[in-house]
């Protein structure tokens, strides 16, 4: 079972690298879905089946589909691909790679400071999570509800097609 974890980890890392290096947006999204799926596998292995399912349904299923819809609506076309290749010169990667490497070094340093004791993961099923949500984390649930409400209202407002609004003064004057 150990090896599945490492395989899923490698697939996740590889597909994430693919996401950030693709020129075509749809390709990148597909790779992102693969990455999310492998992370879901890891969740399963860690004894969090509920979360793994949620990851697939919501993250890969809803959010990524939303992305795909928006890209379809934008209708970018061939010239977008050329533009992307112009923007992605190899020299662009050096700076961020160095910064990320520094943080990675710091992270490894912190992690290696502790001993590598392993633990056995027990399964924590949906019921336990549910009891926790409706128990101590009740307020968090309410707050997420409000956040979703804000999201809905915001998305609706931003997506509205506005007619060209003329002040009624000018409306009367143009008649």
């Amino acid at each position: 079972m150990q090896i599945i974890f490492y395989i899923a980890a490698i697939i996740a890392i590889f597909s994430t690298v693919m996401v950030i290096t693709r020129l075509n947006a749809v390709h990148a999204l597909l790779y992102l879905i693969v990455s999310l799926l492998s992370v879901a596998v890891i969740f399963f292995l860690l004894g969090a089946p509920f979360i793994a399912a949620l990851e697939i349904i919501i993250y890969a299923g809803a959010i990524m589909v939303l992305f795909i819809f928006v890209i379809m609506m934008l209708n970018l076309g061939r010239e977008a691909k050329e533009q992307e290749s112009q923007w992605l010169k190899p020299s662009m990667w050096i700076g961020p790679a160095i910064l990320a490497a520094i943080i990675l070094v710091q992270l490894i340093y912190v992690l290696m400071a502790n001993q590598n004791e392993t633990f056995n993961s027990t399964v924590i099923n949906a019921k336990q999570v549910g009891m926790s949500l409706f128990g101590p984390y009740l307020i968090g649930v309410e707050l997420s509800a409000i956040l979703l409400l804000a999201g809905i209202v915001g998305a609706y407002h931003l997506g509205r097609r506005k007619k060209a609004s003329v002040h009624r003064f000018f409306e009367e004057a143009s008649e």
Partner: peptide, 25 residues
């Protein structure tokens, strides 16, 4: 169900995070 060390998991998480960071920059 498996036994891994927490450091490995956090390392994986960190690598994924940094890859996202590189992509953002």
């Amino acid at each position: 169900m498996i036994s891994i060390s927490i450091e490995t998991g956090l390392l994986l998480s960190g690598i994924l995070f940094l890859l996202g960071l590189i992509g953002l920059l």
